[in-house]
Each structure stands twice: as structure tokens, then as C-alpha cells.
Design a binder for these strands. Structure first.
Lengths: 161, 161
DNA sequence: GGAAGGCGCGTTATATCGTAACGGCACGGC
DNA sequence: GCCGTGCCGTTACGATATAACGCGCCTTCC
């Protein structure tokens, strides 16, 4: 598992791959990846960046759809609920899942300069959280793990500039 | 460092202690703990729970003040900026710091049943986050670590009920 | 003493994020 | 046919957060 976003990659491929995985997963689990849900996922996949719900809405409207906020939020709820996207709490915004299909407690890196959001390996982190919680006899159901900072590219840009 | 919130304690004492620490810290660092800022901190300290800004605003208004949202947000910005309170991103709400004065990257436990928020030791967690980020050459400036779940008391209550 | 600037705060208005609630439509089961 | 379920359109609204302006009180600096 690597973290896309900070590394060069074939973005068209990464989009279509994710879409295919989503389609397959929905087919397997009897979920309906409707046109709207699929379109919202595509929009999110278009950028390795968190988008606000209203930003997604603007894209839909630019395509000529007469969409309203609930439309977008419903699609996002579906995507988040089924692991195809994640909400970045720190930004009140949404990002496509980089590892759909794999069961994972997500952890994110948010570059404050360029806005890129990457999903990173989180096994050790999740372990540490559960461990700390266990000493207080707390049962963890869900975690929010988000780190804000500077990505390698922006650091290089800063150094250069 | 223990996590209050899930354990019995002398709450009045815990409030006045925190207030005194805040006063001392402000005096030391040339910060102004004005009446409003102090009042907002007191309100937050009143509960081991995250309060929305507008909830704090309601309390101020109930006390007869003609407060507006910016008043509360400014006080909260001051408290958060100087480590006397924390924002719980998951809840868009604020909680008094349980360990003012100590330098720490906070990590929180949020009970979904009773709403109690506890601050827990986070050294290992922060370490794990920095470690995972480092493998991607990402510089972490700030972390959001929030675990939602069930606290021991609510678990006991569930088992009993 | 008075100009200049920083800071805290009041106030108005507005931006941004999110949801409740109702109704229509399509599809599948019986 | 009739009903339940799930998806979606639509209206309206609630909740969270900030921009921008101005005032008063300091301190600084000359």
C-alpha cells in the first residue's frame, strides 16, 4: 500500500481503476452505484484533494444538472458509508478513497500548501490509538487521524523559492 | 498524565485548578486572559464534553450578555491558539484542555453515548503518525487524533440495561 | 502632549456547511 | 393490482463560521 498524491502516477489509470473497483464491489455487495453516485465519485477521483460538498455541487451544475445540496450529500453519504470516499474532518471536505475494497482505518496527510490529501498506511497508528484507549478501558469504534503539514514537493518548492 | 472525564474527581477543584493555571500561563507569557475569555474557558471547563460555539453563546446570553457569534469565536480562537482549549474536529465543537501548560499534541476519546470527551496520552500515537508520515517524506505540523466509541461507564450501563 | 499602532471588542451582514421533510417514480414481491 | 423499498427532486431551513468596519483603550515613540 503506497500513498498516492505525492508521487507521479498515471492519473487516468488511477481513476478508471478505482471506478472499476467500485463497480465490482457494488455488484458483489448488492449496492447500487447509480449514475449520480458514480459521477460524484469520478469528480472526487479527479483530484487528489479534498473537495467541499458545494464544490462538487458546482461541478455538477456546470455540467448542466439542476442539482441541490441534498443530492450531493446523499451521494457522498453513500460513498463514505461504503468506503469509496472519506470525509476529512479537519477540512469539512471529501476525498476519494485511495484503497477501495481493502478494509482499513484511514489516516491522512494534508499538505497545507497545495491541498493534496494522501491516505497513508495506518496499522501502527491505529494500534497505538487502540492501545492508549485500552488503558482507559475505552472501546474504539471509529478513528479520525489527520496530519497537516508540508508534502515533499512543496517543501522542495519552498527551498527552491 | 491521566485522562479525566471517565473517572470520578473533584470537579470544582479541577475547574479552579485549570483556571489558575491559565491565569499563571497568561501572566508568564504576556497574554491577556480577559473577562470574556476567562468566562468562555469557565463554561468549557464546566463540562467534560465538547460544546459548540453557539452552545457557549447561548450560555453567555442566558447570563444577560448581548453576545454575537464573533465574540465567542474570538474567545475560542484565543483559547485554542494558546492551548487552553481544543477543537474537536469530528464534532465541530470545543473542549477545555485537560493539561494546560504541558506541551502536547492532543488525542481524544469521544463517547458516542454520553458525549464525554477525554484527552489521552498521545506520545506513542504522535510517534506512529510521524513515523508513517516520514516514510512519505511528509513534514507533520499538526495532528488531529480523535477516537469515537464507548466509555467504560456507558459500556457498564449497556451491559446492565 | 500628541500622533501612530496594536489589541480587544461590538456590530452588521454574509458565507459556508449540512439536513428535515415531503412527494414522485421505478422496480420487485406477492 | 397493491405495497414496500430505495433513489431522487425540491423547498425550506438549521448549524457553523467569518468578513469587514468602527470604537475605545492602551503603549510607544518622538
Amino acid at each position: 500500500m503506497d500513498a498516492l498524491g505525492f508521487t507521479e502516477h498515471d492519473h487516468q489509470h488511477c481513476i478508471s481503476e478505482a471506478l472499476r473497483t467500485a463497480e465490482q464491489t457494488c455488484a458483489d455487495q448488492g449496492l447500487q452505484l447509480t449514475a449520480q453516485r458514480r459521477r460524484v465519485l469520478e469528480i472526487l477521483l479527479g483530484e487528489h484533494r479534498a473537495m467541499g460538498a458545494y464544490e462538487v455541487l458546482d461541478v455538477l451544475r456546470a455540467e448542466g444538472l439542476a442539482a441541490q445540496p441534498p443530492t450531493v450529500y446523499r451521494a457522498l453519504d453513500f460513498l463514505v458509508g461504503n468506503g469509496f470516499a472519506h470525509k476529512i474532518e479537519r477540512l469539512n471536505a471529501f476525498v476519494a478513497c485511495a484503497h477501495p475494497g481493502e478494509r482499513h482505518a484511514p489516516a491522512f496527510l494534508i499538505c497545507s500548501d497545495c491541498g493534496t490529501v494522501a491516505e497513508m498506511p495506518s496499522r501502527e497508528i491505529a494500534q497505538a490509538v487502540r492501545g492508549a484507549a485500552a488503558t482507559l478501558e475505552f472501546d474504539v469504534a471509529r478513528m479520525v487521524i489527520e496530519a497537516e503539514g508540508c508534502c515533499p514537493e512543496c517543501r522542495a518548492a519552498r527551498a527552491a523559492g
